[in-house]
């Protein structure tokens, strides 16, 4: 069965998008990314320090993986910042993909979805393929789709919390109302069963970082998420049984021994 993740017309066999941050060292990062089976890795841009090797080691490790790069605009607080950082990313990474993050509140790093709409409009018109990180607000997701986003990435829970899908109802509504949009849960995934949950809701992919990088054994956890994604997606495609209020025996009752009708 051909079941691929569609990102702006580009097809991927893995439904995991993986971050490159927070690993204990570069070797663990590389091996965990490989173990996850992900074909898309996120990264960012920060001020260069020539005296600190300008991040050359990291860049060489990432290049050696040969994966599709998804640069982010993490840490930006304004439309101007995200637009300019996106343009810098496009030139440096030679990609028109941008994971659009625009922080609205520093307490929970909640996206400023109002400004996000403005920035998305500017970047789409400038030729970017925007993957916006947003909240689980249905109307915001609809507006992003109206602007032309083919991929939308609502949060499961705030970045780095690992709390899983806090509002499955809202996420399910978005899935139901945007059946033709590629939907990816970005942020909040903490354990493999969260991934299964996301896929069972019909989400097309998950983007995660901390859940793997901060695990006791990141490479083993990456493998776990690889299998969780496959299990969740297969479960969704297979169609789960309907829930029932009352118990129903699965073993036939007809022919049950030891039961005798009493004749009067």
């Amino acid at each position: 069965m051909n079941d691929s993740l569609n990102i702006y017309g580009q097809m991927f066999s893995s439904r995991l998008l993986i971050g490159s941050a927070l690993y204990p060292n570069l070797d663990t990062m590389k091996n965990a990314i490989v173990a996850s089976g992900s074909e898309i890795v996120t990264l960012s841009l920060r001020r260069q320090s020539p005296e600190k090797n300008a991040g050359q080691d990291f860049w060489q490790y990432i290049q050696s993986l040969g994966l599709t790069l998804l640069p982010n605009t993490a840490g930006c607080h304004s439309v101007k910042e995200v637009v300019n950082l996106a343009q810098m990313s496009r030139e440096l990474f030679q990609t028109d993909w941008i994971k659009l993050e625009l922080v609205g509140d520093d307490y929970n790093l909640q996206p400023d979805t109002i400004e996000l709409l403005k920035a998305t409009d500017i970047l789409l018109k400038d030729g970017f393929k925007v993957l916006p990180y947003c909240t689980d607000d249905l109307v915001i997701c609809q507006r992003l789709a109206d602007l032309g986003c083919q991929v939308i990435m609502p949060w499961g829970s705030p970045i780095g919390t690992g709390q899983g899908l806090l509002n499955p109802y809202a996420l399910e509504c978005i899935r139901h109302r945007l059946p033709d949009t590629t939907l990816i849960i970005d942020a909040g995934i903490g354990a493999p069963h969260h991934a299964v949950h996301a896929f069972e809701l019909g989400y097309d992919g998950i983007l995660l970082n901390s859940a793997i990088a901060l695990a006791t054994a990141p490479i083993t956890m990456a493998t776990a998420f690889k299998h969780a994604a496959m299990a969740g997606r297969a479960g969704y495609l297979a169609g789960r049984m309907p829930e029932r209020q009352n118990a129903q025996p699965s073993t036939p009752t007809l022919g049950m021994p030891f039961w005798h009708h009493e004749y009067e």
Partner: peptide, 27 residues
């Protein structure tokens, strides 16, 4: 943002603030 093709044409003054960025890990 300043495109690479403009590096030679841009004149810098002492009041300018320059950002030079490189790849770094990110989530």
């Amino acid at each position: 943002f300043v495109a690479q093709s403009n590096y030679h044409n841009i004149v810098v003054s002492s009041t300018d603030m320059i950002d030079i960025v490189s790849p770094i890990f990110g989530g």
